[in-house]
Nucleic acid binder design. Structure first.
Lengths: 249, 249
DNA sequence: CGGGTTTTTGCGTTTAATTGCGGGATTTCG
DNA sequence: CGAAATCCCGCAATTAAACGCAAAAACCCG
């Protein structure tokens, strides 16, 4: 097999699988590892692949690792936030959890909106504070430094005293069978209280988290009124929720 | 699995869920915990994640801060904060108001200090949250967007329920005759409650505010236990307070 | 076609990277 | 304070990479 031919083969393989192992390639093409290594080195010099110990990765996969991934998921979250905002009306009492999606939503609230937002999430509160017409109610208690949200019995008791029109939950994992699950015990307690207190529960989740499960259960799926992801409501992976009578946006 | 591949996987996971546990990762990818730890260490060195005991956090989630407001006469406030910190001891329950002097103090808290800080001031809370050993209790209620502090009957009621060892008040105006005065009615209500609740009241004030008066009265001078300014205690303008039996630092 | 040149390849050796493990220090939490 | 989990350090084994070199293949050109 010619050198160019081999390299084309490798390139195809790496773009297909996002990675190749030198050891596999050499047994596959029947050349020595050195040859494979030299090929990978050349392809890497041309920027076609990223060479790593043991093989190579697709350059499109790794090259600019953080920015595109972060921006991409940021876009998704903005799209979710946009849909969520369409549920808001003037005069509403809105309860929100923490999480980056909620913060994204907070940033995008229309300037003219007049409503009351209640939350224990510090990052969310910071955004709400910047809004000209929003009343901000902060739920107090001990601050969890991990999740940057107030947690504890006082916070839960406070939430039980109110009856918000709508509740937005940033979600870590949701599954048709297992319902909403999460990985922080204290945060779960709080979310439970939020769900109980609210007239309407809206679950915000990027699609990657749909059909995943975390260790601690928050609630069953049927407690949710509306599910919002960045996907169109017709997407196959969302159909289980549609079939359970949940409104999907 | 290749090293870079593994790290990309971890990065995706941490950006999705805001945190990862080393123990879960190692069973998931089937490598030893040391390997995971080394990966996390490398990602942390590149600033991609924040490494913590037991796992790692998303670095984008870690940055919660207000726009760094230019602090007026910061040097003086730092000097005041330094003196105030000398009053702290491990295990104390500390109640603080808002204000830039308090924030300055929050930034300068010694790393080894273990104490519980209670406040309704958002900027102060943000600083306390960054401290490794401090328990942070957030007093909830409606947020005053002007003063970035929670105000209202709930906050006052909450403060009345506690008995902190010491209370630090950022002060807008203090005068031997008129006592502490301020210009925001709601904030004044809160400060009154704070003073009543605390065993010891420490008043932080830069010298230019000493011997000035604002429209609304907070309390008489004799409620104060300790007065801290950036001046040495012997300064003439502080003598009226010394004569009234107030400890001046 | 033949000889010289360049390229490519494989091999042995040396060097570096990666990983898992043991033991002791440190942290966390009840 | 004590137990359990976690971290840190150094070591050793495995694996991959790098390097020089020589044989083989391909190429070039008269």
């Amino acid at each position: 097999m010619l050198k160019k031919e081999r390299q084309a083969y490798i390139l195809q393989k790496v773009n297909l699988h996002n990675k190749v192992l030198s050891s596999l390639l050499c047994s596959e093409i029947n050349v020595s590892e050195d040859t494979i290594r030299r090929d990978l080195q050349e392809l890497a010099d041309e920027g076609k692949v990223i060479k790593v110990h043991g093989g190579a990765l697709s350059s499109s996969f790794y090259e600019v690792s953080l920015p595109p991934a972060a921006v991409y998921s940021q876009q998704k979250k903005k799209s979710i936030a946009q849909k969520a905002i369409s549920l808001l009306e003037n005069g509403m009492f809105v309860l929100t959890s923490g999480g980056t999606t909620i913060v994204e939503m907070a940033r995008m609230l229309p300037t003219h909106l007049r409503a009351t937002f209640i939350s224990g999430s510090i990052p969310a509160i910071l955004e709400y504070m910047h809004h000209p017409h929003i009343e901000v109610i902060l739920v107090g208690d001990k601050i969890s430094k991990n999740s940057k949200i107030t947690v504890g019995p006082e916070a839960i008791a406070k939430i039980k005293q109110i009856k918000p029109d709508i509740c937005f939950l940033g979600t870590n994992a949701i599954d048709p069978e297992q319902g909403i699950t999460d990985n922080d015990w204290e945060v779960v307690q709080l979310k439970k209280a939020m769900i109980e207190a609210s007239r309407k529960v809206v679950c915000l989740s990027i699609a990657e988290k749909v059909n995943t499960v975390q260790p601690i259960k928050v609630c069953d799926t049927d407690k949710i009124d509306i599910l919002i992801t960045e996907l169109p409501p017709e997407s196959p992976q969302l159909q289980p929720f549609v079939n359970m009578g949940i409104r999907v946006l």
